[in-house]
Amino acid sequence: MRKLLTVTMAAVLLLLALGPAARAGDARFWPVGEPGGRPKVVRAWAPPASPYAPGHRGVDLAAPIDAPVRAVAGGRVSFAGEVAGRGVLSITLPRTGGPPLRTTYEPVTALVRRGAKVRAGEVVGTVQLPTGHCPPAARSCLHWGLRRGAVYLDPLSLLGPSALHGRPSRLLPVWGWAWLWT
């Protein structure tokens, strides 16, 4: 019983330490760019000091017009339509706590409808014409956001180490834990 409790506690602590990435499936896919590649971040996440303060509530990724947009993690399409003249696509990620995490992509032409279930890496839309949101360094870009309820989070936190750094994860030995499996 003690071993089972210790193993369970270790697993819970590991999930908490990994943050939303582990609970969202440790995403391996960037929303744009070549599969296995890493697009250029042209504008980083800059959280506002308060709900109505200025800031950047997502990241902007360089992407040409008509580039395919992939779901970073599997989930259900919660919105696919226009907001203020630009296409927006939101995907709710199941089993990510309460309220669940939700990723948002814009400006996009959605290739999926509200209510559709999508897999991680599935093409869900294409980048639309620029709408003036992209910084001068990029002619066109994809704005990628992440929210839990009304709280904006850094969408890069969804990506696993191999997607962020472009190299596979490495397992390291853990000394002194052999008694857990005996």
Rank of each mutant, 00 (worst) to 15 (best):
R170E: 15
T104W: 00
E82N: 13
T126N: 12
H143T: 08
E106H: 10
R86N: 01
G132K: 08
A178K: 12
G166N: 05
R102T: 15
C141Y: 03
L153P: 00
H165S: 13
R119H: 14
G98V: 15
P161I: 15
A84D: 11
Y105C: 11
E106M: 13
G166H: 04
S157P: 07
T103Y: 01
R102Y: 05
L164P: 05
G87L: 03
P107I: 05
G115P: 01
G81M: 08
V127F: 04
L89V: 08
Y152V: 04
G85Q: 07
R95E: 13
P155L: 03
L172D: 11
W181L: 14
P135N: 06
W175C: 15
L93Y: 00
W144M: 07
K117I: 15
G160R: 14
G97E: 02
A116S: 14
V88P: 01
L158T: 00
L142W: 03
G97N: 03
T92D: 12
H143N: 08
L153G: 00
V118T: 08
L93W: 03
R170P: 09
L180V: 04
L89K: 05
P155F: 02
R148Y: 00
A84W: 05
P130Q: 09
Y152K: 06
T104P: 01
L164I: 09
A150V: 14
L111C: 12
V88Y: 02
S157C: 13
W177F: 13
R113P: 06
W179E: 13
Y152A: 07
R147Y: 09
L153D: 00
Q128L: 07
V112Y: 05
G81E: 05
P161A: 14
L171N: 12
E82L: 14
A138V: 06
A80Y: 07
G176Q: 02
A116D: 14
L93V: 09
G145E: 02
T104D: 04
G121F: 03
R139M: 11
H165W: 11
G149K: 01
V118S: 08
P135Q: 06
P161N: 13
T126A: 14
G149I: 03
G176M: 02
C134V: 07
A150Q: 12
R147F: 07
G125N: 10
R139I: 11
V83E: 11
P100Q: 02
R148M: 02
G176S: 04
G166E: 05
L111H: 11
P100D: 02
H165V: 12
T103H: 00
H143E: 07
G85V: 10
G149N: 04
A80Q: 09
G81S: 08
G121L: 02
S140M: 08
L93S: 02
G98L: 15
V123C: 09
W179R: 12
S140Q: 06
L156H: 06
R102S: 08
L180H: 06
P135L: 05
G121R: 01
C141F: 04
P136C: 04
G97H: 03
P94M: 06
W175E: 15
V118A: 08
S162K: 07
G121N: 00
T126E: 08
W181E: 12
G97L: 04
S157G: 11
V118Q: 05
R147K: 13
